[in-house]
Design a protein around this nucleic acid. Structure first.
Lengths: 122, 122
DNA sequence: CCAACCTTACCAAGGTCGTGTCAAGGTTTC
DNA sequence: GAAACCTTGACACGACCTTGGTAAGGTTGG
């Protein structure tokens, strides 16, 4: 059960060799390399390649989407910025405060979020 | 300071009217409508439109990316699926277990995650 | 009622995505 | 050392994204 080279991996996962390189460039799956630079796909990578296909098909999303999710998860600044923007839905509680105050409130909420980090895999 | 119509909103936010409609179709900002169907942008929407521009520019992401993040946040099934896939990095702790066991472990971790839901805005 | 708005629905140009294929060259294996 | 792999880089093409424009028609306000 040694590692497979790119064409063998393509064979067993249903991706083309071309797409395997593309997926790697997206940062999604980066196989080990042999001394000579050959890509070596282990069982874990092969499994992930298969589940990746299911993920895309079942939820109708793109490789770029998954790549963006990866960026979201590894770039805390990006995650907080996007999360902050999405959280700021213009749902002013009717009579609560002037808009400037509302905005300040959102900003504070955002700052508080900044403390959060990776759950550091148990 | 009533609500602005689309061209006025375009004027003050820097987006084109065309893009305002596009942003709406992406589900990012959905202004209220007048009786006759005219879009009405309130202060909250105008502010969000401005910060949206900054968000895109500062992090070099696309409207589609933000749309996907929105999908991630409102579709728990999608979020869990993507999160589960990303969490399953093939980082087998060297001598811990066979790959099948590792896979099962990941699956369990994923199931446990399923309980989580929206923090229900304090 | 007319000008100046708004609406939706199309057509279009330029860019990116997903994918294949080919070329030039290194590696492995027999 | 030749066949069968692998590597990166490039060209290519259809599909989709982003954006603008324009047309046909409803709304608003003097």
């Amino acid at each position: 059960m040694a590692a497979l080279t790119i064409n063998e991996a393509a064979e067993t996962t249903g991706w083309s060799a071309r797409m395997l390189r593309y997926i790697e460039r997206e940062g999604l799956i980066e196989p080990a390399r042999s001394d000579a630079g050959y890509r070596l796909y282990g069982p874990g990578e092969l499994q992930r390649l298969r589940t990746l296909r299911e993920l895309l098909a079942e939820h109708d999303i793109s490789l770029g989407d998954v790549g963006f999710a990866l960026r979201l998860r590894s770039d805390a600044g990006l995650r907080d910025a996007v999360e902050g923007w999405l959280a700021a839905e213009p749902r002013r509680p009717a009579g609560v405060a002037a808009d400037d105050d509302w905005l300040r409130f959102e900003q504070l909420k955002h700052e508080r979020l900044l403390g959060r980090s990776e759950p550091a895999a148990a």
